[in-house]
Amino acid sequence: MLTKRIIPCLDIKNGRTVKGVRFENIRDAGDPVELAKWYAEQGADELVFLDITATNEERKTFAELVRDIARHIDIPFTVGGGISAVADVEVLLQAGADKVSINSAAIRNPQLVEDLAKRFGSQCVTVAIDTKYTEATGWKVYARAGTVETEHATVDWAKKVVELGAGEILLTSMNNDGTKAGFALDITKAVSEAVSVPVIASGGAGTKEHFADAFQEAQADAALAASLFHFRELDIPDLKTYLKTEGIVVRI
């Protein structure tokens, strides 16, 4: 059976992982390649690398890093951050990335999703959606790293990008992100039921039970976390063993 996927997310700045990482057995935890190798050995099913640098000059560094990651890692990985044109994607895919994730650029220019899907195939186009709930607005899509509210209702936007050719949705709840109180199950389930492509739940993971809820209750196909794994509050082998006892299909 197809397994549920566990995905650590690494933020990259100037070619280095940010967020202090506690790894005693890693020579250099700021080195994304070292960290990625460690995660692959731990049983991560995929990795996501987000470039949080701003300038074009620094982005060139990121493309070189992507090449270095692809050279050393034997599991799939997605890269995102600051992608706004077909040419950006071409560079990253040629460097060896398996998928790219686009967010604000898709909101600015939805045609980009269609162009990417036609050019490179839907399988490598992940659309990342940052969403926030307020009583007044319901679940809305936010742009520019969650700073700008858009007109889009979250489920409608997810359906739209899938129609345009997105092959996967990475859904981050801003309400839950950083809380360690669990994933946003309601909106994750609503999106997962509304689209025909896989959905990655993101934001709020704090315990193993939260992952089980994301997979069982919210029907997510994959779940992503960052600091929970980086600070080793939860190790992937323990998490997967637990999920298996809960009857969730995982790769061990």
Partner: peptide, 11 residues
């Protein structure tokens, strides 16, 4: 009725 693409690890 399953998600397409078939994406991830399978046996």
């Amino acid at each position: 009725d399953l998600k397409v693409p078939h994406m991830g690890w399978n046996q």
